[in-house]
Nucleic acid binder design. Structure first.
Lengths: 246, 246
DNA sequence: CGAGGTGTTGAGATTTGTCAACCTACGTGG
DNA sequence: CCACGTAGGTTGACAAATCTCAACACCTCG
């Protein structure tokens, strides 16, 4: 749905006069909630866009932190690789999502961000964002809300990982994905996964085999139609019930 | 170690002229990194302290969000209870920790905060904090860092919950606890747990029986000495190895 | 058309959960 | 000050969920 083939490598692009006020994502992104006047002030906040080819990284763990990245198009995963080889996918990110919030605290990135398809991001220099946030209260508020929601979201992941069965995890995952797609104007019932079974497993804390079996089971039960990465939600109520067992 | 018996109920106290500049916790808390001059400006940020008796709540899920709370003394857990009865402990909090960051996004609290011993908190009116953060860059920076670290911490919990075995979870939990106690000037090898086995289990995503068995196993292996809630770390290296399997 | 990455399925091993019995420590009230 | 009740903790036996290992199917891309 968004295969811009203009640029496949991962390098800075000449500034395209990125103006948040014109951006179709402004309802999802940092400028959300800002008035037209405030939007004008955002001018110059995004100085740069960057393209990242599928499979390449936007940043890597322990890279120095300089900017946040707002996904303009494409799809990313963020993941932490431990010394002992295991790794955990900490999130999947689509248009409008902000990447890098976990790096502010230590001034280094804490995870790798990998493009799962050819993608483009807006580069938000953090020092500039902080300065603007000091000047414009609505922007400050929006930044705090985004960070806070990230915390709340991660805590609901703790809930999922700490106490749900495999099927409930998958159901919750699909509902979350569908919700976000709907927010972006896509169908909430027919979707194409951008990640492998293994990546889903690393996100949901289970093996790829268990992911696969759960999909098969849900298909058998008439809740989903699964054909490789094409998923169709047939019975949304059932899915909700499975995500929240009695 | 901190049994102030002055006030056992959960009610506001007359302002005690709380001045961050005098506070012994300033190295751990919001004012961290501020100069003496900046500290003066924090005057009036904390208008109120509150005592919370053991077992009582500081706030509950869906309470309107008005303030952050900095733990002055005592010990809290935060937890989310789902409709279906399960609940997940999202964190344990001791002196210097800031509670409520997850509520900014929705302007309602997302979890319950329960005192596990008689405790006292500083009440930080959030609107006032935001205003000050707009005026004093170092305070803004510190607030962002604290939120970011909370995100990074929650993500490392995802890693634990997503991929570690019971024993590794317990080992990681104890190391984290010991580290935080050391930061506060306590022993890192002998400690008294403030929470039940069940609460540990709800935090680490396992049953209380598995928690108990893991403690017993670690004791049998000569890594810990366990007597109820009194824990002594005998072999720190072994504990580290268990927390990070090959 | 072949190769490699990805996905599915099966059988058996392992870990953890469940249920139940029992033990221990602590606080309360007689 | 002691006895008892109760919440919390330990341990065992068994069940259930998930992981591991392995074989094979599918799809895409060169």
């Amino acid at each position: 749905m968004s295969d811009r083939s203009e640029a496949l490598a991962s390098y800075p692009e000449p500034a395209l006069k990125a103006v948040c006020g014109n951006c179709t994502l402004r309802e999802l992104c940092l400028p959300y909630g800002l008035s037209a006047d405030d939007l004008d002030r955002m001018d110059g906040l995004v100085t740069l866009r960057r393209s990242v080819a599928r499979g390449r990284s936007l940043f890597r763990r322990s890279d120095p932190f300089e900017a946040l990245y707002s996904v303009r198009s494409g799809f990313f995963k963020t993941c932490i690789t431990t010394e002992d080889g295991r790794d955990q996918v900490t999130g999947f990110h689509m248009a409008g999502d902000l990447l890098g919030l976990d790096a502010i605290g230590r001034e280094r990135h804490n995870c790798d961000a990998i493009a799962l398809e050819d993608s483009q991001v807006c580069v938000v220099a953090f020092s500039r964002l902080e300065r603007l946030a000091r000047e414009y209260e609505p922007l400050q508020r929006q930044l705090h809300q985004l960070m806070s929601r990230e915390i709340a979201h991660d805590q609901s992941m703790m809930l999922l990982l700490g106490g749900m069965r495999a099927e409930a995890r998958i159901a919750t995952f699909l509902i979350d994905l569908a919700t976000r797609l709907v927010q972006r104007g896509f169908s909430g019932s027919a979707m194409v996964l951008r990640m492998t079974r293994e990546e889903i497993g690393l996100y949901l804390g289970m093996t790829l085999e268990t992911v696969s079996r759960s999909f098969s089971k849900l298909q058998l039960d008439g809740v989903l139609e699964v054909r490789q990465r094409q998923i169709r939600i047939i019975d949304q109520d059932a899915l909700l019930r499975i995500a929240t067992p009695a």
